[in-house]
């Protein structure tokens, strides 16, 4: 399972990535257009098992994440890539 987090600014996302590299497997990626249409960056954490995903949510919130999504990867009949579905985490 993957968890995606957004931050208030690009600087905040960069800072969180630098702080988190030893705690979580994270990758700084553009905010997917399913979440927001404007340009921005967020952190994709994972792959994680369910308890690990729960811990990741707490850690990401502690480092300033303002939006969190559970990311499900599904096989796509029309694409060579997995389809990513984003479910908001309250």
């Amino acid at each position: 399972m993957l968890v995606f987090a957004t931050f208030p600014s690009t600087h905040a996302a960069l800072r969180a990535e630098q702080e988190l590299t030893r705690e979580l497997p994270v990758e700084l990626i553009p905010v997917p257009r399913q979440i927001r249409s404007d340009c921005g960056f967020g952190l994709l954490a994972g792959p994680l098992d369910p308890p690990g995903a729960g811990r990741a949510v707490v850690i990401l919130k502690g480092h300033g994440a303002t939006g969190l999504w559970r990311v499900l990867e599904l096989d796509s009949p029309t694409s060579r890539h997995k389809e990513k579905r984003y479910e908001p985490i309250p």
Binding site: T10, L14, E27, L28, I29, P30, F41, S79, R80, H81
Partner: peptide, 19 residues
């Protein structure tokens, strides 16, 4: 340069996801 490097990371990642 920091933003430029970040844009390069974002571009290459997005390319890996492109059709």
């Amino acid at each position: 340069d920091e933003l430029g490097a970040l844009l390069m990371r974002a571009f290459l990642y997005t390319l890996t996801e492109s059709e």
